[in-house]
Write a protein that binds this DNA or RNA. Structure first.
Lengths: 128, 128
DNA sequence: CCGTATCCAAGTTGATACTG
DNA sequence: CAGTATCAACTTGGATACGG
């Protein structure tokens, strides 16, 4: 019980009434906001790509095996709207569009890192 | 760019090919597994409750304003199946069922904590 | 008290074809 | 190259009623 209390800032959680988060929108609870920002079908994979550097639309399309153009555009637009990524359009023929992380987007790294660490432990444990 | 590289274990991410995660199931990438485990409509709120202690079904139902019995049962069953929570049935009349976090469930704390911290920063920034 | 069963509305994702 | 547009399939969540 006390195993985590001195390791993590646990009582950061209760300072917002997350139990009442669903009156109206889903953003009253910060955890829900984070989930909304990265919870899309492909968003963490897109973030993973962009953490490795700037990418063109076509590059992302080829890297994220199985994604359709529609979904890629849609997820990128949402992340741009949320301020996580930057979209740079080069007016030329043929067109060229580059996507990169914003400063805010880069601050997601510890979140993804925590999720990655837990996921690995979880997958290991499931083998038993 | 190097702002985070010495603060976090960044290159934990690329050791699994997350880009190819969607061939077959959605669990090849550890980050996706974590998302699957906590991504339900009410799961982080349920976890939040259970981090504060053991709860009866009715208690959860009252705390999570707006949740239906069907959804509460469904989310609890999924989390039980994933090994995050423990379900203790007391065979008595009227029936009594208690839910609590497992050890694995408790290890989610740093994840939720990271998400909570980021969400707060995100919500603050959106006010501008 | 703690559920299950059924039905339905809404949202999400995908397949496919087309365009500046 | 980097998208849009349209339609169909699938998934999710909720309202309601009933049961041990």
């Amino acid at each position: 019980m006390k195993a985590y209390s001195d390791t993590f800032v646990l009582n950061a959680l209760p300072d917002v009434d997350c139990s009442a988060a669903y009156q109206g929108d889903r953003t009253s609870c910060p955890v829900e906001s984070t989930l909304a920002a990265i919870g899309g079908r492909w968003k963490v994979l897109i973030l993973h790509e962009l953490f490795n550097g700037t990418r063109r639309f076509g590059q992302l399309h080829r890297s994220l095996h199985g994604i359709t153009q529609k979904m890629l555009t849609q997820q990128l637009r949402e992340m741009e709207h949320d301020g996580l990524i930057h979209r740079e359009v080069y007016t030329q023929v043929p067109p060229k569009v580059e996507y990169s992380l914003t400063d805010l987007g880069r601050t997601l790294h510890p979140v993804l890192d925590a999720m990655h660490l837990w996921g690995k432990k979880y997958l290991d444990q499931k083998k038993d």
